[in-house]
């Protein structure tokens, strides 16, 4: 299975990189961009064939290393 992991700052945590990108987009003339939040995207290629077990395993990886849950949230998508 493949696990696609998105790691993002939690709501309310200041994201200065997202802000800087937002300002740069405005400077380029892009209008109507209300907010930019920047995160990380991580792909895991797993031996596991069972989707539930693959998710459990990815979840444990997120908690222990891939995300810092003090400031970040994660979302896992399991695919073939």
């Amino acid at each position: 299975m493949k696990a696609k992991v998105h790691v993002m700052f939690k709501e309310g945590v200041l994201d200065p990189q997202g802000k800087a990108v937002s300002h740069a987009l405005a400077a380029l003339g892009f209008k109507g961009v209300n907010e930019v939040r920047q995160g990380k995207y991580i792909e895991l290629d797993l031996d596991e064939k069972n989707p539930d077990k693959a998710r459990q395993s990815a979840e444990a990886m997120c908690k222990q290393l891939l995300a810092n849950t003090v400031i970040e949230t994660y979302a896992i998508e399991i695919t073939e």
Partner: peptide, 8 residues
């Protein structure tokens, strides 16, 4: 946690 400096 130590985050990126305010002014990047």
């Amino acid at each position: 946690v130590l985050m990126k400096n305010r002014d990047l």
